[in-house]
Computed example of a mutant assay.
Amino acid sequence: MPLGPLRSLIRRPRRAVLPQPATWLRQQAREAALLRWSVKVLAADLVQRHYAAGLAGPAVPLPEAPQQAGLSSRSCRQADIESPWLRHWCRALGAFPFYHRKLWEAGFILQVLWEQGMLQPGRRALGFAVGREPLPACLASRGVAVLATDLDARDSRARDWIATGQHGTGTDPLFRPHLSDRAAFDALVRFRAADMAALPADLQDGSRDIVWSACAMEHLGSLERGMAFVEAAMRCLRPGGIAVHTTELNLDGSGRTLARGGTVLFQQRHLEALAARLAAQGHRMLPLDLAHAPQIMDQYVDLPPFEDGRVPLGPLSPPHLRLSVGGHPATSVGIVVMAGQPPP
């Protein structure tokens, strides 16, 4: 078939012209950002489909009463976000069930404390690195007396937390009006500065029923310092008291990890070693449950930037149960430790 006039539309390929290295690197960086954004678009759409199916989201009912789940030390997972037990705590937290590990951490701590009979009037709780989190108000609404602590604002290590609005200096940012009136809150919640890396001796008096921290022990500079904090915090508890801490878990349990720096990543072997250390001191960590059938949200690893709007074409809300920390796949894990009688 003769090409005729079509011949003018057929262009011969031009000789490839390679860009300068610096230009090529900038192009690759821009395209990598667009690729991340495109993946986040698909993940955010997946979230909306789960909301439409009634698995989570703003339209799901929030049970008024808590429900038993039999939690032990445990990693974050999609099934928990969609569970009735977490939906109940969303009511107290002033949130709807969404696929984010920080929501899971708060719900996990509250559920464990409730299951262990600790959310009752007369209990005494000590929280570390509380920042502006809702847990002090949640505990106080159940009649628990709370001492909330955070790093002294004059400490240079507090600068980044202050800059990002995550540092605490008093009780005002901790108050939640939907849970109680201010007078009832003030009667039960106090604040003081405390360094997790060097706990004040007067806090280690064995008088508390509850100690907790939410994703704080991984910021103490090393894996060892994080584990040492957990051990020291046990001295704040009476026998029979309970410690609940959430931290960062490297899902690659056999490879390398971040062992030092501003954020470290614990692996299963480190948490098992911590359990052995605590057992030697008369305490008991509840069994570590990391085995579960992964669902789609458990297989999505979120990449930076996280929820700060600096994506190419606008903010998105993809699932954030898994994330990349220094190139390592990570999630949140909660450990539960029952205080025993310390050895003489």
Score class of each variant (00 low, 15 high):
339 A>V: 02
329 P>A: 11
179 L>Q: 09
132 R>V: 15
40 K>W: 02
166 Q>K: 12
337 V>Y: 03
196 M>T: 05
263 T>R: 00
290 L>T: 15
297 M>I: 07
335 I>N: 07
110 L>C: 15
138 C>T: 11
42 L>I: 03
192 R>C: 00
55 L>R: 06
254 S>D: 15
45 D>F: 09
65 A>W: 05
171 T>G: 07
239 P>Q: 06
269 R>Q: 15
21 P>M: 05
57 G>T: 05
40 K>N: 08
78 Q>S: 13
51 Y>R: 03
53 A>T: 01
138 C>N: 09
250 N>C: 14
237 L>K: 09
100 H>A: 11
165 G>L: 10
176 R>T: 05
133 E>V: 04
80 D>C: 10
226 G>H: 07
222 S>P: 04
167 H>Y: 03
2 P>W: 00
300 Y>R: 06
265 L>W: 08
332 S>E: 13
122 G>R: 09
149 T>L: 00
161 W>M: 08
197 A>Y: 08
249 L>C: 04
53 A>R: 07
6 L>C: 02
124 R>Y: 01
91 R>S: 15
208 R>Y: 09
256 R>Y: 05
247 T>M: 11
68 Q>Y: 15
342 P>R: 04
153 A>E: 15
158 A>Q: 01
319 P>D: 09
49 R>E: 15
292 H>D: 14
332 S>Y: 10
298 D>E: 07
190 R>K: 00
277 R>E: 14
158 A>R: 02
35 L>R: 06
24 W>T: 07
149 T>Y: 00
57 G>N: 09
159 R>L: 14
304 P>F: 12
59 A>R: 13
86 L>Q: 10
252 D>R: 12
205 D>H: 02
281 Q>P: 04
87 R>K: 11
92 A>R: 15
37 W>R: 00
184 A>H: 13
227 M>A: 08
181 D>F: 13
149 T>R: 00
267 Q>P: 12
204 Q>D: 02
178 H>K: 07
298 D>G: 10
299 Q>K: 14
77 R>L: 14
298 D>H: 07
197 A>T: 12
102 K>R: 14
184 A>E: 15
298 D>R: 01
77 R>G: 10
15 R>W: 03
171 T>S: 09
205 D>M: 01
330 A>N: 09
204 Q>P: 04
135 L>V: 13
27 Q>S: 08
253 G>T: 13
205 D>A: 15
189 V>R: 01
217 M>E: 14
333 V>K: 07
237 L>A: 06
236 C>L: 02
194 A>E: 11
243 A>H: 10
176 R>F: 06
